[in-house]
Measured scan of single mutants.
Amino acid sequence: AFSSEQLARLKREFNENRYLTERRRQQLSSELGLNEAQIKIWFQNKRA
């Protein structure tokens, strides 16, 4: 489960760009304390 802070950040990123570069995913992973797979799957689900 994502914290409300993490979700807000993911939604902001998604609004700016529906697709993440690998580098951006790595940055978000480290900033949010999530693993890259969690972020990747969140974006895939959000696009679906």
Rank of each mutant, 00 (worst) to 15 (best):
F14L: 03
F43G: 00
R25K: 10
A1F: 11
Y19S: 06
Q38L: 15
T21C: 07
A1P: 12
E13I: 06
E22V: 13
S29H: 03
L10R: 01
Q27M: 10
L7Q: 06
S3R: 04
E31W: 04
E36P: 11
L32Q: 00
L28D: 00
S29E: 04
L34H: 01
R47H: 11
L7N: 05
Q26I: 09
E5R: 07
K40F: 15
N17G: 05
F2W: 06
E31A: 05
F2V: 05
W42Q: 00
E31V: 04
L34V: 12
A37E: 15
E5A: 13
W42F: 06
N45I: 10
Y19A: 05
F2G: 01
L20A: 04
L34Q: 01
E5V: 08
R25N: 11
Q38S: 09
A37S: 13
Q38I: 13
A48F: 08
A48N: 11
E22W: 09
I41T: 11
L28W: 01
L20C: 06
A1T: 13
W42P: 00
L32N: 01
S30R: 14
K11H: 15
K46Y: 14
L34N: 01
F43E: 02
Q6G: 02
N17I: 03
F2C: 03
F14E: 02
G33E: 05
K46C: 08
Q26G: 06
L10H: 00
N45R: 10
L28E: 00
K11M: 15
L10S: 00
E5S: 09
E22R: 13
A8Y: 06
L32R: 00
S4L: 11
Q27C: 06
A8L: 08
E31S: 04
K11D: 15
F2P: 05
R24F: 06
T21M: 03
S3P: 02
N35E: 14
N15L: 12
I41M: 14
R23V: 14
K40M: 15
R47Y: 09
A48H: 11
R12A: 14
E16Y: 08
L34C: 07
L7I: 11
E31Y: 05
E16D: 08
L10A: 01
R18E: 10
L10G: 02
N15E: 15
S30V: 14
K46N: 11
T21P: 06
N35Q: 11
S4A: 13
R23D: 14
R24P: 01
A48D: 10
I41W: 14
L20V: 05
Y19C: 07
S4R: 12
R9I: 13
L20R: 01
S4K: 14
G33W: 03
R47G: 07
N15K: 12
W42D: 01
L10F: 02
F14H: 03
S3L: 04
N15H: 12
E31R: 02
Q26W: 06
Q26A: 12
R9P: 01
R9A: 12
A48Y: 08
E5W: 13
E13W: 03
R47F: 10
R23L: 14
A48P: 05
L20N: 02
L32P: 00
Q27N: 07
N15V: 08
F2S: 02
K11W: 15
K46P: 04
A8R: 10
F43N: 00
E16N: 09
Q44E: 14
R12H: 11
Q44T: 07
S30F: 13
R12W: 11
E5P: 04
E36V: 11
R25H: 05
E22D: 13
L28A: 00
S4Q: 13
E31P: 00
A48E: 13
W42K: 00
E36R: 04
E22I: 10
N15G: 07
S29G: 06
K11E: 15
N15T: 10
Q38H: 07
R9K: 08
S30C: 09
L20T: 02
R47I: 13
K46S: 13
Q6N: 04
L34E: 00
Q38R: 07
Q6D: 04
L28F: 03
Q6F: 02
R18N: 10
F43H: 00
R18H: 11
Q6T: 07
K40G: 10
L7A: 05
E36D: 06
A37C: 12
R47N: 14
I39N: 01
Y19H: 14
E31T: 05
R12M: 11
R12G: 06
Q44D: 15
R25V: 15
Y19V: 10
F43L: 03
K46E: 15
R12P: 00
G33Q: 07
K40I: 14
R24I: 07
N15Y: 11
L20F: 03
N17R: 06
W42H: 02
Q6A: 07
K46A: 15
N15I: 09
L7K: 05
S29Q: 05
E5G: 07
R25Q: 12
E13G: 00
L34M: 07
Q27Y: 08
A1K: 11
L34G: 01
S4I: 11
L28P: 00
I41S: 11
I39W: 03
T21G: 07
S30E: 14
S3T: 15
F2H: 03
Q27H: 07
S3M: 04
I41A: 12
E5F: 09
L20I: 08
L28I: 06
E31D: 07
A1L: 12
L34K: 02
K11S: 13
R24D: 05
L34D: 00
L7D: 05
S3A: 04
R12D: 11
T21Y: 03
E13M: 05
R9F: 06
A37I: 13
S30I: 15
F14K: 02
N45E: 15
A48C: 09
E5D: 08
S29V: 08
S29M: 06
R12N: 08
E5Y: 10
S4D: 14
L32A: 03
I39Q: 02
K46M: 15
I39A: 00
N35S: 15
F43D: 00
T21F: 03
L10W: 01
R25D: 01
A48T: 08
N35G: 11
L32K: 00
Q6S: 04
L10M: 04
R23C: 09
L10V: 01
R25P: 04
F43Y: 06
R23E: 15
N17F: 06
R9Y: 06
K46H: 12
N45V: 09
Q6R: 02
Q26T: 08
I41E: 15
R18K: 11
F14S: 02
K11R: 14
R9T: 08
S30A: 15
K40Y: 13
E5M: 07
Q38C: 10
R9H: 07
Y19K: 05
F43Q: 00
E31G: 02
E13S: 04
E22L: 10
I41N: 10
K40P: 00
F2L: 12
Y19P: 04
Q26D: 05
L20D: 12
W42Y: 06
L28C: 03
L28G: 00
